[in-house]
C-alpha cells in the first residue's frame, strides 16, 4: 500500500497539521513504509476476536455528581496565548 503526496496533504488537513511542501514526499514514503509493516497484520486470522481497547478491560468509574474542582479560570488563562475579559481569543470565525 502506498500513499501519494495528495493523500498526505489530505490527511494533514484532517489533522489541521501544517507540513512543509518539501517534506510531503518523505512523509508519503515513511507512511507507506508503515502501512507495509501493517499489512503483516492480515497474516493472523482475527475472526470473532473481541477488539481490546484497554489492558484491564475496565469500565468507566462512576462518581457522585458533585462539584470537586475549584474555579481555576484565572490560573489557566494566565498561560493562554491571548485572552480578554475571561475569554480565549481566536481570529474572527463569523463575519
Amino acid at each position: 500500500m502506498s500513499l501519494t503526496a495528495d493523500d498526505v496533504k489530505k490527511i494533514a488537513h484532517l489533522a489541521r497539521l501544517g507540513i512543509e511542501e518539501q517534506d510531503v514526499a518523505s512523509y508519503a514514503k515513511d507512511l507507506s513504509g508503515m502501512l507495509d509493516l501493517m499489512t503483516r497484520m492480515s497474516d493472523l486470522d482475527t475472526d470473532g476476536v473481541e477488539p481490546m481497547a484497554h489492558p484491564m478491560d475496565q469500565v468507566q468509574r462512576l462518581r457522585a455528581d458533585a462539584v470537586t474542582e475549584q474555579d481555576n479560570r484565572e490560573k489557566f488563562q494566565a498561560i493562554a496565548p491571548q485572552v480578554e475579559a475571561g475569554l480565549y481569543l481566536v481570529p474572527k470565525v463569523i463575519e
Binding site: I11, L17, D30
Partner: peptide
C-alpha cells in the same frame, strides 16, 4: 489569517517531524 490557519500553523510550527509522522499515521 483565520482559525484554520491558527490551528494548522501553530501545530505545524510547534511539532517536530516524528510527532507529525505519528499524528498523520493515526489520523489516517
Amino acid at each position: 489569517a483565520d482559525l484554520t490557519d491558527l490551528y494548522t500553523r501553530s501545530r505545524g510550527e510547534g511539532f517536530g517531524k516524528e510527532v507529525k509522522r505519528r499524528i498523520l499515521m493515526g489520523t489516517y
